[in-house]
Computed example of a mutant assay.
Amino acid sequence: MSHTAHIPSHRKPRRNASKTALRAGVAGGVLSTIAVAGAAGPAQAEPVTQTIEMPTITSGLSTAVAASAQATQQVAQDLQTQAQEDAAAATAAKAAKKAKAEAVRKAEAKKKAEAAAKAKAEAAERASRSTARTTLSATSGSTAGTAASTSSASSSSSSSSATGSAAAIVAFAQAQVGDAYVPGGTGPNSWDCSGLVQAAFRSINVDLPRVSQSQSTVGTQVSLSNLQPGDILYWGSAGSAYHVGIYVGNGQFVGAQNSSTGVVQRPLSYDPPSGAVRVL
């Protein structure tokens, strides 16, 4: 046995190469850091000056301002348009009001003119009949009293000269003498001319047209020299007559003349008719 067999070796064990390299690298890095820090330590750091450019907003602001200006202009235009429309509406309303007032004025003037013309026509009719009565009285001369007596007798006997249906018509017409004349009146206490004639014939169940124009063409045309009680007298032309009455005999007729006289019985000479028709 060798005398050195139990003596441990003083040689250091071999290290792994990769570990050695790693340690060397770390140490080198540490040393480098220390060296840099040492070199930079004593020196004073200079202040750093840097210019930062802010983003420009000029273009966006211009767009916003332009949009605002456009909106303001549009509002102004809208207000101007509305003002013009309001002014036009006010002008139209004023014109319409003026036109309506003018139409009302003209209507009232026309109504007054018609009323005046009607009054004038009635006055002329009364004057004409008054003249006729005056002329008749003058031509009678000294026989006026006798004529009055004859007229009275004729009036009282006129009903007796009619018979049958004609007598009923005459009686109905004479019963209305003194009633009022009203345009469009059909009784029982106020009449117009054709309304009275129609009612008289209706009393014997004979239906006649309502207006004088049509009544002047019913039945048969007869001569004024051949009248009979119950005949219809008309003034104007047949088919366009403006007035009608009923012949009651003995040269007398009954008619609703006008608003001044009402329903009267008068001699034919009071208002000579234009023609006559016979229905019965």
Rank of each mutant, 00 (worst) to 15 (best):
T4Y: 14
A5H: 14
K12T: 10
R15E: 13
A17K: 04
S18Y: 10
T20V: 15
A21H: 07
L22W: 14
R23S: 03
A24F: 14
V26L: 10
V26R: 07
A37N: 09
G41D: 05
P42R: 10
A43T: 13
E46W: 05
Q50D: 06
M54D: 11
M54C: 07
P55W: 00
I57V: 15
I57Y: 12
S59Q: 12
G60R: 12
G60C: 05
L61T: 14
Q73G: 15
Q74H: 13
V75S: 13
D78Q: 14
K97F: 09
A99C: 05
K100F: 11
E108Y: 01
K110M: 11
E114L: 07
E114F: 08
K120G: 10
E122F: 02
E122T: 11
A123L: 13
A127E: 04
S128C: 03
R133H: 01
T135A: 13
T135G: 03
L136A: 15
S137P: 04
S140V: 06
S140P: 08
G141K: 00
G145F: 14
A148F: 12
S160E: 06
S160Q: 00
S161C: 05
A162L: 04
A167P: 02
A168P: 02
I169M: 08
I169E: 03
F172C: 02
Q176I: 07
V177A: 07
D179P: 02
G187M: 01
W191K: 00
S194C: 03
A199L: 02
F201M: 02
S203N: 03
R210E: 11
T217G: 08
S223N: 12
S225C: 06
G230W: 00
I232K: 07
W235A: 04
W235T: 09
A238G: 05
A238V: 07
A241M: 01
I246Y: 04
I246L: 01
I246C: 04
V248C: 02
G249A: 09
Q265P: 07
P267S: 09
P267Y: 05
P272F: 13
R278D: 00
